[in-house]
Nucleic acid binder design. Structure first.
Lengths: 266, 266
DNA sequence: GCCGAAGTGTGTCCTGGATTGCAGAACTCT
DNA sequence: AGAGTTCTGCAATCCAGGACACACTTCGGC
């Protein structure tokens, strides 16, 4: 239950610690909390599906080679300046992967939850990869160097197949998103995105409602829309009782209704 | 030189035959031409980069199992109704991969040239894959059944790695396209797309100009825009001498100029 | 408690493309 | 050579969202 899975249901203590953003480098007691988490018994590797087929020895070896590192909320994990040369595993916190246009506008490709693996492009010898990764909460990230990955990984056919599957899913998701972008109005995209995000989110066992922990601005980045337009859509949804709003969090009230809207074209 | 590569530079006879569309099933002499191509000495498999690492025996075996099949211009290679259950190799002609929205509007995901492999999602056990594939010229396609692929393929780690690379490139392309869609105006997207298409196209050795063989409508499908808007952009480009137009083909005259526009944001 | 920052609600104006509806030009087939 | 298709070119109108510009509120820090 403390094992970091793909959803955020893990290790509440870590998460709640990471939740408090500390923009201006204010090392206080919360930092100790986070740092404590680094030393926790659970390695970066286990419980990450990608590594499930490794031998215990390999796993241990890799684990020793992958020092956990803390990124403050707002810090860049990688960028053009510091191009990807490693495989990252997100242990705690949240990371936003995004791209930047010439004029500075950005589109968020994904928002990662603990347990996610990123920087996978390196696995396939891709140099050109102009994505940025930024911690949107204080986050703990382990990194495996390219060489280590090469040695322990690509040799193992089971892992290779798993990587293919991973990438394949990503392709499917991206194609879906692309067509949404091209031929669906903002309202539909918003509804769809909320639902998708909710899947990952923990469900309140009593009310069955689910909370998405994002600001309108972050959501807008994901939708490829402006903050204003997104806000408008959200308050529209709110008045229709499809969602409830709280500063930085959105609670899905009526997922059926959202699903209907998400299928709408006009 | 007759070997089908990833660009369209191969086997001119086949291609020119396939060029003539025959919408209403009019089996005439052109068909014989196409059918003749089926029997040609070159197998579907060799010269496709994905299979380069197979043993000659494996290759021969697979080749025997992959009957070439003719699709008329306009025919569907697969769809929801006939979901993907095989790996396809495009031997001659051109295939358009696309998705459909509820209201019937479509977005073209890719336009494939001879030598391309598609239906790769099956490789990774993806069922949900609501893409359609349609021949936009008379095309010859070989197909490998899922079982055959499984047996001869996934066992081979080199091939697995190659598949990863393939998918990885696709991910990169899609992310690029997604951000273009989200934050670039039509003109920029059009220019960028033309340039990308031109890469694949053969280059006129004298003028250095390259021709993209698409109608405005097909291009619009790729851009996620209407035919009209695309036409407008194209004639704009034409008056600026960036391109020259011909029914169903666009000749790049000034790729530097296009590149400049493709980087523009406004 | 107070202050500043971050997050949200609105309102107005303005524009890039979608929509609609034709008309002419270029091919293809017979 | 004629007839039906397929492409391409306009032009008029409409509208979802972008760009700006603020006001208000909630929160975390001091």
């Amino acid at each position: 239950m403390t094992a970091p899975g793909l959803n955020a249901a893990c290790s509440t203590t870590i998460l709640s610690a990471a939740t408090k953003p500390a923009k201006v480098w204010a090392p206080h007691e919360q930092e100790v909390e986070i740092l404590a988490a680094i030393g926790e018994p659970f390695s970066c590797l286990n419980a990450v599906e990608l590594f499930a087929d490794l031998t215990t020895q390999d796993m241990a070896a890799l684990d020793r080679m992958s020092p956990p590192r803390l990124f403050r909320s707002g810090e860049l994990v990688f960028s053009q300046a510091q191009p990807v040369s490693a495989l990252f595993i997100l242990k705690a916190g949240r990371i936003r992967i995004f791209r930047v246009a010439e004029d500075g506008k950005t589109l968020t490709i994904a928002i990662l939850e603990p347990g996610a693996v990123f920087g996978e492009m390196l696995l396939i010898g891709q140099q050109m990869y102009d994505n940025y990764a930024e911690a949107i909460e204080d986050s703990i990230v382990c990194q495996l160097s390219a060489a280590d990955v090469e040695e322990h990984f690509l040799s193992n056919p089971k892992v290779a197949v798993k990587i293919s599957r991973l990438l394949g899913e990503q392709v499917a998701r991206l194609e879906e998103r692309l067509t949404d972008m091209a031929l669906r109005p903002l309202s539909a995209r918003t509804a769809a995105t909320l639902l998708k995000l909710a899947e990952t989110a923990p469900r309140n066992r009593f009310t069955q409602s689910q909370a998405v922990k994002l600001t309108h601005e972050q959501l807008a980045g994901l939708l490829g829309a402006t903050r204003e337009a997104t806000s408008k859509t959200m308050s529209d949804f709110a008045t229709r009782n499809l969602i409830r709003q709280g500063r930085g969090r959105i609670i899905i009230e009526n997922s059926a209704g959202l699903r209907r809207i998400s299928r709408t074209t006009f």
